[in-house]
Nucleic acid binder design. Sequence first.
DNA 1: TGCTCATATTTCCATATGGAAATATGATTC
DNA 2: GAATCATATTTCCATATGGAAATATGAGCA
Lengths: 100, 100
Amino acid sequence: MSAYAALAEPHRRQILDLLLSGERPAGELVRHLGLSQPGVSKHLKVLREAGLVAVRTEGRQRVYALRPEPLAEVDQWLEPYRAFWSRRLDALERHLEENP
Amino acid sequence: MSAYAALAEPHRRQILDLLLSGERPAGELVRHLGLSQPGVSKHLKVLREAGLVAVRTEGRQRVYALRPEPLAEVDQWLEPYRAFWSRRLDALERHLEENP
DNA sequence: TGCTCATATTTCCATATGGAAATATGATTC
DNA sequence: GAATCATATTTCCATATGGAAATATGAGCA
């Protein structure tokens, strides 16, 4: 699954957000998400296949870590659009200056 | 539909890319995408509902224009991740400097 | 008004998706 | 090696999705 498609699901974005502050075992993610354990496990599988997370086995736990690299593609795709909305903001600023 | 979900479909990203260079009537998008006319029309509906495009009727044509504002939310969501992968690149640079 | 062009909507279909519940696996402990 | 903990996989179900084909709508023109 593409990074774009992986991000389409809100719970998956939430998982990534949780991993921003550091690695976490799957169970901790389950507790935070308020979803069933199998449900979270499925989303984790999608994120793994999209290359957005990596797993490490530590004792009986499976510790998940963020791998943000695939997001760089999204970031690059956004690049020309950023210019587009900056231009709009510039226009807005000019408008506000000229009509105070 | 959220901007994230709208971007999950490759044809829809392609439509936005086509609109980056300026407004276009629906028919022109159909020609570029190699999809059926109704197929394109459906994707345009999704993009409209996500606020990513605006339509204007001009004679018999329906002219579509980009409205990139909803992408700003995606851009902001990406922000902390950008920091994350810059840090990784920094680490890589240090590694390369120290191991030339 | 009737016709044609451009586009939207509807219908049908096959497939994908997310969630809940049940079950399986793999590591740890006794 | 049996019991247990943490997690993954499977199964089932309801709903969503994308595409093709057919049909409908609406603007401009004869």
